[in-house]
Nucleic acid binder design. Structure first.
Length: 109
DNA sequence: ACAGTGACTACAT
DNA sequence: AATGTAGCCACTG
């Protein structure tokens, strides 16, 4: 298992997401300089469950605010529960007020 | 070294 | 406006 540098870059960004905020894969990819590598961000998250320190992957969703990756969590509902624990409302696998909670690493950093 | 894969996004019809 | 298709790049076998 070789952790690519790209993966570590992704983990670093995701760990910077503030409590109660969320972001999208594309935003992270763009922050890394490869706006078209959004899928790579997803692959990185796929490995994130073995990465330390733990990565708040539940704060990362697709650009529509849907919890597309919830199936990859230990339990499918854990992602929604984690978000709700941060005060984020999740309805039908979609984050409510996503536009308001969106955290853009490019602008915030 | 080649081809397949994927937690996405943007463009086209 | 909604659905379908294609591009995209790094990783794995």
């Amino acid at each position: 298992m070789v952790a690519g540098d790209f993966y570590n870059q992704v983990y670093e960004i995701v760990r910077l997401i503030p409590f109660g905020r969320v972001t999208s894969y594309g935003a992270i990819a763009k922050a890394l300089g490869s706006g078209k590598s959004s899928r790579l961000v997803g692959l990185a998250m796929n490995h994130s469950h073995n990465v330390l320190p733990q990565v708040p992957a539940h704060r990362v969703v697709n650009r529509n605010g849907f919890l597309t990756g919830k199936h990859h969590f230990t339990d499918e509902k854990s992602m929604q529960q984690l978000l709700e624990a941060e005060g984020i409302q999740v309805l039908d696998d979609q984050i409510q007020d996503f536009n308001r909670l969106f955290w853009d690493p490019l602008k915030e950093l």
